[in-house]
């Protein structure tokens, strides 16, 4: 209830995720992680490979059940109300595949229909997205024939098709050229300005610096630092995010090594 009262659209409390290992023990990918994302902000989840970013985002999207802790999106518990969560959520990853034999337009209409839209509404919404994301020139080509950047635009369209108030994007610009990158980042900002709440995980630190209102630094499944860029600068005494990143993650190393 507190989430609904407050301004926080995304609330994670003491999230834990253990993966079973073949030897019978468990790997802790997420370790008592807590954070909040207020409405209308872009929250950047940063961290080295294996820090647990992707797992966290999958838990938030209801794709994975947390071993412990609670996550709420707009007040809905991801573990007990997955369908409500999925209804208000757009989820995107860098390596999501598309249906090779459908055209971009058909694919977008399909996902709109899966969000229970009727056909005219779905088509109208898809036309709008095609216009916004600059898909028009390849909207009727089969997805199998598209370039990486074109595919990622279609993927963003898919995530946004139901106009969800919350967007979770896992490395949305991985492997994209400068132009596609620009289109996508501008689009994300525009969505934020319209009041959407966005969680972004990225490896590109300058991108995070440019985009994020709030930044959470993850390492070994835990949040080692959190705040806007200014407070992180003060915390670490560094100016550039990449320096901040190295310093904070490095400082955490001895503690991180003991967590298993």
């Amino acid at each position: 209830m507190d989430a609904a009262d407050s301004n926080d659209m995304v609330v994670a409390e003491e999230l834990v995720k253990d993966f079973p290992r073949p030897d019978g023990r468990e790997t802790r990918a997420v370790d008592h992680l807590s954070f909040r994302v207020p409405k209308g902000t872009i929250y950047g989840l940063l961290g080295p490979n294996g820090a647990g970013k992707t797992t966290t985002l999958r838990i938030l999207s209801g794709l994975m059940a947390p071993t412990g802790g609670v996550a709420r999106l707009a007040g809905f518990d991801v573990a007990t109300e997955p369908r409500e969560v999925k209804r208000i959520l757009g989820f995107l990853t860098a390596n999501t595949g598309l249906y090779q034999r459908l055209s971009a337009r058909e694919l977008l209409v399909y996902f709109a229909r899966l969000h229970q839209m009727d056909r005219p509404a779905a088509e109208a919404r898809v036309d709008q997205l095609i216009d916004w994301l600059g898909i028009a020139s390849f909207a009727d080509l089969r997805c199998g024939a598209l370039s990486t950047g074109q595919k990622q635009r279609v993927n963003i369209g898919r995530a946004l098709v139901a106009d969800p108030p919350i967007l979770i994007m896992d490395e949305p610009t991985l492997g994209l050229d400068v132009l596609s990158n620009r289109v996508i980042l501008d689009f994300i900002k525009r969505e934020r300005d319209e009041g959407k709440t966005i969680i972004l995980s990225t490896h590109y630190l300058d991108e995070a610096e440019d985009m994020c209102d709030m930044i959470g630094l993850m390492h070994s499944g835990r949040l080692v630092a959190e705040g806007d860029l200014e407070s992180l600068r003060q915390l670490s005494g560094e100016h550039r995010l990449s320096r901040i990143f190295l310093k904070l993650v490095h400082a955490d190393e001895p503690a991180g090594a003991s967590a298993s």
Binding site: L63, F91, N95, T96, G97, L114, H115
Partner: peptide, 14 residues
């Protein structure tokens, strides 16, 4: 295998 399952599973469809 094609990686489309994830996007399908985040749709509000049982």
């Amino acid at each position: 295998e094609r990686g489309t399952l994830e996007s399908l599973m985040v749709c509000p469809v049982p």
